[in-house]
Simulated assay, not measured.
Amino acid sequence: TVILAEQHFHNLIDMGWDDVQLYTAGCEDRGTAITVGTHAILGDEQLLASAVFVTVDEFQRTGVSQRAIIQKSHPHFLLASATPLPRSMMISVLGGLSVSEIRQQPIQRGNVIVRWVLPQKRDGVYSIVERELNKGHQAFIIYPRIGDEEQEQSAVKGLREWSQRYDENDSEFDASDVALLTGKTSPEDKLDIFRQFKEGHIRILISTIIVEVGIDCKNATVAVVVGADKFGLAQLWQIRGRVCRSEDTSFLLLLAETSNETSIARLDTIERAKTGFEIAEHDLRLRGAGEVFSTRQTGLPDLRWCSLVDDYDLMIEAKETVQAGSVGSGVREMMELKYGKSLELGGVV
């Protein structure tokens, strides 16, 4: 999140804004018109109380309690995400959140080819990666765990394998073109690796899911996800977003072999999906939306006779009936009796 905040901060500076501050852990409010920051902002009650407008980028990475802290100050509130949370989809149906969907692709964006690849066909994956590197592009190789040099599907072992591949194949690339970025990397080294990758000094970035947000490198055109069945739908969609940032055709290659029906459904969905709302809808079916009057953001909601996906029109009609005042005055009292203080969470998007 620090990397993402810094990108937004520098983008605003480049656009000509000068009354802006970057707020991360350990910072103090300087009273600027615009504050760009991480979750650290949530600990500054005075700063939040003075805000008239708050936008949360990549809001799927925040919890219900964190969003409740922001809404407590009653600012105008905008949530932005390429992968809406199932809970937020539910709140939009129940009336607490209005939704605007950007359906058009950004200008000057190429196609993204998404393929599920079985491990025995990984030579084809190597060929695509090397072809893109030969064009001058860059690649992400993403693993489900940090691990060690002996552990399968680990980033540390992946670093050794990809480095050896270029040392042994008499390639124009060598081990110095490959770098490792994980959650154990120090904050200073993370920023340095990110800078080197963005400037093109690092050609292949071996990483864990840490790269799902915050890295904006238009020259990266291929992402290989090893053990893709270990990742969630939203995570895979976010990784897809790392490589569709230029006019060039990009590739998301999902290496996985699984017989698990849920994992197969996720991989099939990510191959076909075109929008984040499709991902959210499938996530609703697979994981549930959680509960309205709780901090749970997944799982089966407290709905006995209807489905948020299949009965959408009926639920919209019910919402409009309530908003028109056609419901008895005892409903609120009944809800308070059942949910108590948790009822307040129903207004948290």
Rank of each mutant, 00 (worst) to 15 (best):
L4M: 06
L12R: 02
V20W: 06
Q21H: 00
Y23L: 04
T24K: 05
G26K: 05
G31T: 11
G31C: 10
G31N: 10
T38S: 10
A40D: 03
E45Q: 05
A51R: 12
V54Q: 09
T62S: 13
G63T: 14
V64L: 00
K72S: 07
H74C: 13
T83Y: 11
L85A: 15
V93H: 09
G95Y: 07
E101I: 15
Q108M: 12
I113Y: 07
I113M: 09
V117R: 04
E130W: 01
N134S: 14
K135N: 14
H137Y: 13
A139M: 04
D148P: 01
E150V: 06
E152Q: 15
Q153H: 09
D170Q: 14
D174G: 15
V178N: 06
L180D: 07
T182C: 04
T182H: 15
K184V: 08
L191F: 05
R203V: 08
E212R: 12
G214M: 09
I215T: 02
K218V: 09
N219M: 12
G227V: 04
G227P: 06
A234D: 02
A234P: 01
Q235S: 15
Q235H: 05
Q238K: 08
I239Q: 03
R242W: 14
R245A: 08
L253Y: 07
A256R: 03
A256W: 01
E257H: 07
S259P: 00
S259T: 13
S259H: 13
N260D: 15
T262I: 12
R266C: 02
L267M: 08
K274A: 04
T275K: 12
T275P: 00
G276N: 09
A289Y: 05
G290W: 00
Q297I: 03
T298S: 09
G299H: 04
P301Y: 00
D302W: 09
R304I: 09
D310W: 03
D311G: 02
E320R: 07
V327H: 08
S329H: 07
V331E: 03
R332M: 11
E333M: 10
M335T: 11
G340N: 13
S342E: 11
L343W: 06
G346L: 04
